[in-house]
Design a binder for these strands. Structure first.
Length: 283
DNA sequence: ATGTGTTCCTGTCCGC
DNA sequence: TGCGGACAGGAACACA
């Protein structure tokens, strides 16, 4: 579910609850998500102070006073919900655990963070902070699309010679980290590039348009608190509202919203995943 | 090295 | 109302 804007929205919701505070207690209610959780995770988290909560791609990274970093990935259906904030240290302030509540963190001061993930494609891990960059899930990631390492020259160079459809290339987290099915579709629409086009067969000046298209759509989505289609919630349970700003995603059969375009949004399947685009204005 | 298909898991929705 | 199949914000992994 969550792509970069949703994870960033979660980070911003959790940061004021977590940063500078200690994890008073951790409860692992299920030993495995996508993979087994790290050995003794509850004990390693208990008593640790959270120094900073960062995001890399679609991962949340909490640096702890113990010298370890907690890595969290939300997979397709993961949620991190905060309860009990400002309500004092009463157990009654927290709702009873629900189905698919897999990990519970009690924060000093009374807040509780609950990780809920029905599909269990999410994941958590612990690693030494000093070696975080070498973690297998992080080591191969491409640049942050909103960072300085992502620019025209980089993208042009990385797409050159690639035969795969540009949509698939942009979903490859080694090329650029944080895009998913929604925002790739929206960015390609904004750049007027057909998702089916071989990545290496796009004129450089058109590839260059992708950079601001990607940056803009992600920035706008973050400002909207992400997109809520089914599962995604902000940390207080609120919906994101960027889904109302989709121009192609989920709009199969609807009129294209391109300036002066009379086309119809189409849905096709690429490597097993839905792609939405306007064949008329995306070339 | 590239590119594609399968797989993990649960929930929801749609057509018959 | 029940049942089967398609589909869902991801991405590692196995294979051509």
């Amino acid at each position: 579910m969550p792509e970069l804007p949703e994870v960033e929205t979660v980070r911003r919701g959790l940061a004021p609850v977590l940063e500078g505070r200690r994890i008073a207690r951790a409860e692992v209610r299920r030993p495995d998500l996508r993979w087994p959780l790290p050995e003794g995770m509850a004990g390693r988290l208990a008593g640790a102070r959270v120094l900073a909560l960062a995001r890399r791609s679609k991962y949340l990274l909490a640096d702890l006073s113990t010298g370890e970093t907690l890595l969290i990935h939300l997979g397709m259906s993961g949620r991190l919900l905060v309860s009990g904030r400002m309500l004092g240290d009463f157990a009654h302030a927290h709702p009873a655990p629900e189905r698919h509540d897999h990990v519970v963190l009690d924060i000093e001061g009374g807040a509780r963070i609950t990780f809920n993930d029905p599909r269990r494609f999410g994941h958590m891990d612990l690693m030494p902070t000093a070696a975080a960059g070498a973690h297998p899930l992080l080591a191969g990631l491409g640049p942050e699309p909103l960072g300085n390492g992502f620019h025209e020259d980089y993208l042009i160079a990385r797409l050159r010679g690639r035969a795969m459809p540009v949509k698939s290339a942009l979903l490859d987290q080694r090329l650029v980290a944080g895009l998913g099915n929604i925002y790739v579709a929206e960015a390609l629409f904004r750049a007027a590039i057909a998702p089916t086009r071989p990545a290496g067969r796009i004129a450089a000046r058109r590839v260059a348009r992708l950079v601001p298209a990607i940056r803009d759509v992600l920035t706008e989505a973050i400002a909207a608190g992400g997109s809520s289609l089914r599962d995604f919630r902000q940390t207080g349970g609120e919906l994101g509202y960027f889904q109302h700003a989709f121009r192609v995603y989920g709009r199969e059969g609807a009129p294209c919203l391109g300036e002066g375009c009379s086309g119809t949004v189409r849905r096709i399947v690429q490597s097993g995943r839905s792609t939405f685009f306007c064949p008329r204005c995306q070339r």
